[in-house]
């Protein structure tokens, strides 16, 4: 069983401890959890903030970029004074200020087949904060191999998508987006609240998975359209011919 909670922790997380779905057992699971967040931008930064606030004990933060002024319309973890600083370092400082009980490790790196092993080593869950399909496929393969839930999120303008890919229970990312050799789409426009909606959904799924574990619903593929405020849930079955998950 995970570690016990101190009186300070019981006070800090009081509103979560009140929830029957979480309670003290769930909070202790959060405290014992290690979560990797790949990409600390619009999605990953907000997810990191939610994870630290909720009491996840250990966060691994990976990004290779420095804060730029054009990030600040949506990457709310950063401020104007952070421009030019490494996102991982700024994120670590901000999360420390929010919750000193949360231990953070920073990985100044691009996600690829070589670097991903260190990031995911010993993790309970990985959250997608990347901005390209190539990195997502790397994360998906690595997460599936290690039997770690992978919480995908993506945004574009007013729209966004989210899915929890859970080894042994759901389809994987490649079932939905098989590698056909098609080129990556170019960077798109984005408003902050769209990233907020999708990051919140990713964070809910992550917290459910960490606390409720096998009884947490996977939820399918969620598509959000901001212009008409519509959510759509798409049920995706595992592809028996998927080259990533069909053999595991």
């Amino acid at each position: 069983m995970p570690e016990t909670l101190s009186p300070d922790e019981k006070d800090r997380y009081r509103r979560q401890l009140q929830m029957p779905e979480i309670g003290e057992d769930g909070q202790r699971r959060l405290k014992a959890a290690t979560v990797a967040i790949a990409g600390i931008g619009g999605l990953g930064g907000l997810c990191a903030y939610y994870m630290a606030a909720a009491g996840v004990g250990h966060l691994r933060l990976a990004d290779m970029d420095q804060v730029a002024i054009h990030n600040l319309n949506r990457q709310l973890l950063y401020a104007s004074g952070d421009i030019g600083r490494a996102k991982t370092v700024c994120a670590r400082d901000r999360l420390k200020a929010l919750n000193p009980l949360c231990r953070t490790e920073t990985f100044q790196m691009r996600v690829d087949d070589e670097s991903v092993a260190a990031l995911l080593e010993g993790c309970d869950l990985v959250i997608d904060g990347t901005d390209n399909l190539t990195s997502r496929r790397v994360l998906n393969r690595a997460a599936w191999k290690r039997r770690i839930p992978f919480i995908y999120g993506g945004v574009n303008g007013f729209n966004g998508m989210m899915a929890a890919f859970i080894p042994g229970r759901t389809a994987c990312l490649e079932c939905v987006f098989p590698d056909t050799g098609a080129p990556e789409p170019p960077p798109s426009g984005i408003i902050g609240p769209t990233a907020g909606v999708i990051a919140a959904l990713q964070s809910i799924q992550a917290l459910k998975q960490l606390t409720l574990q096998d009884s947490a619903g996977s939820g399918g593929l969620i598509h959000f359209r901001g212009l008409d405020l519509r959510f759509k849930k798409i049920t995706v079955d595992r592809d028996p011919a998927c080259r990533v998950c069909s053999s595991t």
């Binding site: 619009g42 390209n132 574009n156």
Partner: peptide
């Protein structure tokens, strides 16, 4: 038809 979203 749903155009997926890949920004982050």
């Amino acid at each position: 038809l749903i155009n997926p979203d890949f920004g982050g």
